[in-house]
Simulated assay, not measured.
Amino acid sequence: MITIHITSASKVGCVRSQNEDMVLVGNHFVRNDGFKTRVDLTNSDRYLVAVADGMGGHNRGDVASSDALHNLQFFFHDLPTGLNPGGINEMMVGWLDSINNIVASKGRSDEQYKGMGTTLVGLAFYEGEFYSLNCGDSRLYRFRDGELTQLTSDHSLSNMLGSSQHSNIITNCIGGGCSTSFIDIVKITADVKAGDVYMLCSDGLTDMLPDHILTTLLTNGSDANNLCDAAVAAGGLDNVSCCVLQF
């Protein structure tokens, strides 16, 4: 039995007129709200948490992030049993093609949706195995023994060039005009330990709070709502969303 205490929050911030982020926790969707729960998992269970940061299309990134998470939730729970990591990867690549087509087709049929897209970062539990999922520049972190470690790599121009001058330009996402989207899928089961804290977040959190501040907040027991409030207090220049999982 694996027990996880989960908190999540998603806030509009101080500048944006609407929240284009969304968080998925199990079967619960979070936007402009907070949510907390406890889950007890056995090897026969499936569970998914994810953060999507929408963008573009006349501010209809809210539609892209919602479409991606609702579609992913249905897809994940509809997966056949007995898949190995290679099978999971193959199915996820197929899902990415499908959701890209869905998002793009909305843009072709209605001008207000043209160019909309979303990032996606997730942590999935499938038949006893944990997988990280990443498309874009939202992030998954592990906090262990006072040390914060980023587990995903940003699909961004600044990361490619090794500079912070283009921090808001992403090179990969769902929709958004990307014709060659990809998703990083990594089995991380062997690295998950009791006492670990995992955090998923949009860049609205990490742009406002550097790693040393996040480390201090997590050391002091901050939950997702506390972290989002701290990012808003620091300026809240973007929508801010996160999910904190205590194993």
Score class of each variant (00 low, 15 high):
64 A>G: 09
26 G>P: 00
38 R>D: 11
42 T>H: 07
220 N>F: 06
154 D>S: 03
223 D>C: 05
52 A>R: 01
167 S>G: 08
6 I>E: 01
120 L>M: 13
184 D>F: 01
20 E>V: 00
186 V>H: 12
48 L>G: 00
242 C>G: 06
6 I>G: 02
212 H>R: 11
132 S>H: 02
160 M>P: 02
44 S>A: 10
164 S>I: 13
147 E>P: 01
40 D>S: 12
6 I>P: 04
27 N>R: 14
201 C>D: 09
22 M>F: 03
161 L>V: 09
89 N>D: 12
233 A>F: 11
159 N>M: 14
220 N>G: 09
151 L>M: 12
84 N>T: 13
159 N>T: 13
41 L>P: 00
196 D>V: 11
95 W>S: 04
105 S>M: 11
129 E>K: 08
174 I>T: 01
119 T>K: 05
146 G>S: 09
206 T>N: 03
135 C>K: 05
168 N>S: 14
149 T>C: 07
126 Y>V: 02
230 A>K: 06
171 T>R: 02
137 D>Q: 08
164 S>H: 15
10 S>W: 01
18 Q>A: 12
182 F>T: 13
128 G>H: 08
224 A>M: 06
132 S>V: 05
30 V>N: 01
225 N>W: 05
149 T>G: 01
56 G>P: 02
176 G>Y: 02
31 R>C: 12
112 Q>S: 15
217 L>E: 01
2 I>D: 05
21 D>I: 03
199 M>N: 02
99 I>P: 00
187 K>I: 12
148 L>A: 07
129 E>R: 11
153 S>V: 15
114 K>I: 11
78 D>V: 05
162 G>D: 14
131 Y>T: 03
88 I>M: 11
154 D>I: 02
239 N>Q: 05
241 S>P: 01
127 E>W: 09
182 F>S: 15
22 M>D: 03
46 R>K: 12
57 G>H: 08
197 V>S: 06
220 N>E: 14
68 A>V: 11
